[in-house]
């Protein structure tokens, strides 16, 4: 663990909490893309299947459980509890055009052709484009509420900090994971134009 990855995880945690609190307090999910939240739930579910097979650390296990629980709680708030405030008309991104290519790419380019590893790779590829429906919705509605902007800024910062973590780990442990790095760079670049507006 290093400071870059720790602050990255905390930025990620912050983003999720900001979103949950925003929807809960305002009792509305207006301006929030439910489709991006579906993609995030798929990302965490396919990536954290190793919860039952591999124990890395208490921190790792706790964070995975929190990310899984919060992503499904967010889906519950959007699609069930505050369903009436969900903005169907502006949340129109075809997420199957993200899921399928990510899955096919995961079958072609991975570290090992095993069930868990292909799903982990799929989750890495999917996460890099998971925010597209949200950015698409923000561009369609022409504006993002300030809280949504804070959410996107924290979420974008998390993977940018992970890039610093990968540089640090390459320099100190000579450890690197090219799949995660390339996808992480794509993910951060997608936020850049939003950061520019921010």
């Amino acid at each position: 663990m290093n400071i870059f990855r720790l602050t990255g995880d905390l930025a990620h945690l912050l983003a999720i909490i900001i979103l949950l609190l925003k929807i809960w307090k305002t009792r509305s999910c207006a301006g929030i893309s439910g489709k991006s939240q579906i993609l995030f739930a798929i990302v965490y579910t396919t990536r954290y299947l190793d919860l039952v097979t591999t124990y890395v650390s208490a921190y790792n296990t706790l964070m995975k459980i929190f990310f899984l629980a919060s992503s499904y709680a967010t889906l519950y708030l959007i699609y069930i509890k505050f369903k009436a405030t969900y903005d169907h008309n502006h949340d129109t991104f075809r997420i199957e055009f993200l899921i399928l290519p990510a899955f096919i790419l995961a079958l072609l380019i991975n570290h090992a052709f095993t069930f868990l590893e292909v799903l982990w790779t799929f989750s890495i590829y999917l996460e890099s484009v998971a925010i597209l429906p949200q950015l698409f919705m923000v561009s369609k509605t022409g504006e993002a509420e300030s809280i949504t902007s804070h959410y996107l800024f924290a979420l974008g910062s998390y993977r940018a900090l992970y890039i610093l973590n990968w540089i640090y780990r390459y320099a100190t442990e000579v450890h690197y994971d090219l799949i995660a790095i390339v996808a992480g760079i794509v993910q951060t670049v997608l936020y850049c134009d939003f950061f520019y507006l921010y």
């Binding site: 990536r47 591999t54 790792n60 990310f67 090992a112 982990w120 992970y162 994971d177 995660a180």
Partner: peptide
């Protein structure tokens, strides 16, 4: 042997 990749990052 099949390379077992352990992912220690979230």
């Amino acid at each position: 042997a099949r390379p077992v990749v352990v992912h220690d990052e979230l």
